[in-house]
């Protein structure tokens, strides 16, 4: 589904990704872990198409398309979803109205008619139940006045509504209490299928107790320095990153 080869990316003069390789197949869950400043958030931003990041080398193949050629909305239409570490507050734009616009723009891209009001409402009801999102929050302005946990649940709600093929969860566990973590994990696990894939970017192992990854990668200084199975996450939890980064140095 996703093949990243030798990806280099910079912000201003500073190179952050320095030759990153990763391959993700349909049906898989990948966890990317690493210490602060290793390039985790840069990777998610580059995959989602943020233009502050300049890709200086490498290529990203997504379902046979050159991903880096697409703008952010096209990536979304093609099935990429990024759950933000810090979801943005948008005063005055209602959560529901915004999702309806999003769904209809994608339908337009695929030359489909706008979604029927009835179908949309049914979908909202079903998907919001998945992450136990309160009715009031659905109609409020996007993320405005939401608690940290509600914002993250809202991200997963949007993910459920947009039915992506490849979801990237950027530090979705940060700032979540244990109940919210469980709810978010339940949402992600329920949405998992043999046709979609998930990349979980995280600093800590605890989310991986609830969402079991098929692969765990360690990102350090802009490159993947180790890849293993789910037991690697536990090893990292136990030993920290030093034993790997020293080896690297």
């Amino acid at each position: 589904m996703l093949k990243v080869k030798n990806l280099h990316a910079s912000v201003g003069d500073k190179e952050i990704l320095k030759g990153l390789d990763i391959e993700v197949k349909a049906g898989e869950i990948h966890a990317i872990m690493g210490p602060n400043g290793s390039g985790k958030s840069t990777l998610s931003a580059v995959l989602a198409g943020r233009d502050e990041y300049e890709v200086t080398a490498g290529e990203v193949d997504y379902l046979g398309k050159e991903l880096l050629e697409l703008n952010p909305e096209e990536r979304s239409w093609e099935g990429i979803f990024l759950a933000f570490q810090y979801p943005v507050e948008i005063p005055g734009v209602s959560n529901i109205n915004f999702l309806k616009t999003a769904i209809n723009e994608r339908r337009k891209y695929f030359e489909q008619d706008p979604i029927a009001a009835k179908d949309f409402l049914k979908m909202v009801k079903e998907k919001s139940a998945l992450v136990e999102l309160n009715d009031k929050l659905k109609n409020r302005s996007v993320n405005v006045g939401f608690s940290g946990g509600e914002k993250k649940r809202n991200e997963i709600f949007q993910m459920a509504m947009l039915e992506p093929k490849l979801s990237i969860l950027d530090e979705t566990d940060s700032g979540l209490d244990i109940d919210a973590l469980r709810i978010v994990a339940h949402g992600v696990n329920t949405l998992k299928s043999k046709d979609n894939a998930t990349i979980i970017i995280t600093h800590y192992q605890r989310l991986l107790d609830y969402i079991i990854p098929d692969f765990v990668h360690v990102l350090y200084d802009g490159r993947i320095i180790k890849t293993g199975g789910k037991e690697l996450a536990l090893e990292l939890e136990d030993k920290g990153y030093d034993w790997l980064t020293k080896e690297e140095a």
Binding site: E73, S76, P87, P91, V93, F98, I103
Partner: peptide, 22 residues
């Protein structure tokens, strides 16, 4: 906010209109 809306599949132009409307 514009980037956030774009990642949800709302084109840049529509995102701007949505923000102006709000």
């Amino acid at each position: 906010a514009i980037f956030y809306l774009q990642t949800r599949g709302i084109s840049k132009e529509s995102a701007k209109n949505l923000l102006i409307e709000a």
